[in-house]
């Protein structure tokens, strides 16, 4: 993972608890989540592939048999925060996921995969 691909998103103190925000990067929108209950950070694309709505950052966090997930506020499609797979609809496409790191209270997202938007193999989440 190229260390130059980390972009600054926001301060940890700006984040809601157990919820997400949307980060602008050029014309891209990335959803960043602070899953306080698990003390974990995740990032995915903000676009819900179901109806193409920029909404996942406003979704509700939860878990399915221990797998962390986000539910789109529009029609409650849920996606794994670890690998981006849709968990409750086989016909729905996956979402891209991005690594996140926290350094001295600042949050960074690794946007390597943004440069190849059609990459079909999202990078596995690596806990920081």
């Amino acid at each position: 993972m190229d260390k130059n691909n980390w972009i600054y998103a926001c301060k940890a103190t700006d984040m809601p608890h157990n919820g997400g925000v949307c980060v602008q990067y050029g014309t891209e929108q990335i959803a960043l989540y602070y899953f306080t209950h698990r003390n974990e950070w995740y990032a995915t694309q903000n676009l819900c592939p179901h109806k193409k709505q920029m909404a996942l950052s406003r979704g509700m966090l939860g878990s399915l048999q221990g797998e962390p997930k986000v539910a789109c506020p529009f029609h409650k499609k849920t996606f794994s925060l670890k690998n981006g797979q849709c968990l409750n609809d086989e016909t729905c496409s996956s979402i891209k996921t991005y690594p996140v790191k926290v350094q001295e209270g600042n949050i960074f997202i690794n946007i390597e995969t943004l440069l190849t938007p059609h990459s079909s193999t999202p990078i596995e989440y690596e806990p920081q």
């Binding site: 157990n18 899953f35 306080t36 209950h37 698990r38 979704g59 509700m60 966090l61 939860g62 878990s63 399915l64 048999q65 221990g66 962390p68 997930k69 539910a71 409650k76 849920t78």
Partner: peptide, 20 residues
């Protein structure tokens, strides 16, 4: 709070059904 309820009475991390 939800987290207080979850820690006292539930398991896992909640979901879009139990949170609301």
């Amino acid at each position: 709070t939800f987290d207080a309820v979850l820690d006292a009475l539930g398991t896992g991390d909640g979901c879009e059904i139990c949170r609301p």
